[in-house]
Design a binder for these strands. Structure first.
Ligand SMILES: [Zn+2]
Ligand SMILES: [Zn+2]
Ligand SMILES: [Zn+2]
Ligand SMILES: [Zn+2]
Lengths: 155, 155
DNA sequence: TCTGGGATGTTATATTGTAACGTTGTTGGC
DNA sequence: GCCAACAACGTTACAATATAACATCCCAGA
């Protein structure tokens, strides 16, 4: 999900954005890919591949793991979703054109996940990679802890 | 591995350090746990659980997945190794007392992995988490790309 | 010596992800 | 329109990663 007021609206926006980008880039935004993207956005947090498969099988009983994983590959490859490596789960990207690197805050309690793609972090990482004479291609930053809502609730 | 001149020396140092810390903390550094830690350090990069199991079975044919995973849990829990989430692999920690959070540079070519636990990155992350009113407990930062050696070699 | 709890053994199973190959469907050149 | 090429998808099988549950062992401390 990632911070929204009207989640239906939020889902639609994400799908329309993906639709537009696919048109521009001549990518095939098939029903299957759209359906998987919708299901990822519908969940309020990281979605697991086999949960997506189970949901998909309700409307498409012949769906198989490869069905889901191929759609996920497409969506990841084109920046519409991210894989959360620490969770083996997938989450929608709220700004698929802006960047490759997304950083995440993930609440251990409510599982809410939000992107926190701060330029200062990017700069600090870049400084360190340069110091280490390393050419970075891809960065995974996943910060686990407790979100404000859960902290307040537990007081 | 992580930067060393004499890797035998490097392995021994890591094991002795773990031994000392376990004594101090009254932890049981059993033969099995020591063996798994040694095997992780012997590899020059992230080690996979089932590769460790295969090696272990050469001397301990009755070893099972749980055998390895329990030792890994102990080693992770006490900071002697880290899990590299993006790779489903495990790597020795070069400074188990210093911190919980280790950042990694991982070469896509040679698979060499080095810790890059820079304070500036930590500070940048902290600033962002505070801005987001988030209390961080655990951070995964894995930077993939190409190391200096591999860049030079390919020129 | 007894005993409680941690470590390990053992079996089974859950979860996550890919390989390989066949079929379908679209698209663009002829 | 026809056909070749290629991408998407269907299908089967399997590989790779990880955990649950319960039994047994073993040692430190009462
Ligand atoms: Zn994103
Ligand atoms: Zn929360
Ligand atoms: Zn470390
Ligand atoms: Zn390299």
């Amino acid at each position: 999900m990632i911070q929204c007021e009207d989640h239906e609206e939020c889902i639609l926006t994400a799908i329309e954005m993906a639709d537009r980008i696919c048109s521009q880039k001549q990518l095939k935004f098939t029903d299957l890919r759209k359906e998987i993207l919708r299901m990822i956005w519908e969940g309020h947090g990281p979605q697991k591949a086999y949960d997506l498969l189970n949901k998909l099988q309700q409307t498409n009983p012949s769906a198989k793991p490869a069905t889901v994983y191929r759609a996920l590959d497409f969506l990841i490859g084109n920046g519409f979703i991210h894989k959360v490596a620490s969770l083996n789960a997938f989450v929608g990207c709220s700004h698929p054109l802006k960047h490759q690197e997304c950083y995440f805050l993930i609440c251990d309690d409510c599982k809410n996940i939000s992107e926190c793609c701060d330029a200062n972090i990017t700069a600090a990482i870049q400084t360190t990679t340069i110091e280490n004479q390393f050419v970075a291609k891809n960065t995974t930053l996943e910060i686990f802890g407790h979100c404000n809502e859960c902290l307040n609730r537990s007081e």
